[in-house]
């Protein structure tokens, strides 16, 4: 699975949580909480979606490692 494939999947999962977000305009350094106004429930739903789509489980203590889209791509790429 390429990095682009992972990016696309993560964005699909994000759209499921926050459909009003224009995912095509997201930069890799976009802070998901601050700039997209995601809260802890949104983040949980997102990581649940990632787990369902890619089988990668992000434990709670690693939430700090997926602050931006780029972080998340790196995190998942290393585990998928």
């Amino acid at each position: 699975m390429t990095s682009e494939d992972i990016r696309s999947t993560l964005l699909t999962c994000l759209s499921d949580v926050a459909p009003e977000v224009d995912t095509e305009a997201l930069e890799d350094d976009t802070d998901l909480r601050d700039e997209l106004d995601l809260d802890s429930m949104d983040i949980l739903r997102w990581v649940q979606g990632i787990h369902k789509a890619l089988g990668v489980e992000i434990p709670e203590e690693d939430y700090g490692k997926v602050v931006t889209l780029g972080d998340a791509i790196d995190y998942v790429s290393a585990r998928v």
């Binding site: 977000v21 305009a25 997201l26 601050d34 997209l36």
Partner: peptide, 17 residues
């Protein structure tokens, strides 16, 4: 005020809402 308010037209979807 939120620390970094979301700016519309940037990351929110454009086109007919």
């Amino acid at each position: 005020t939120p620390r970094r308010p979301m700016h519309r037209g940037g990351l929110l979807r454009e086109g007919p809402m």
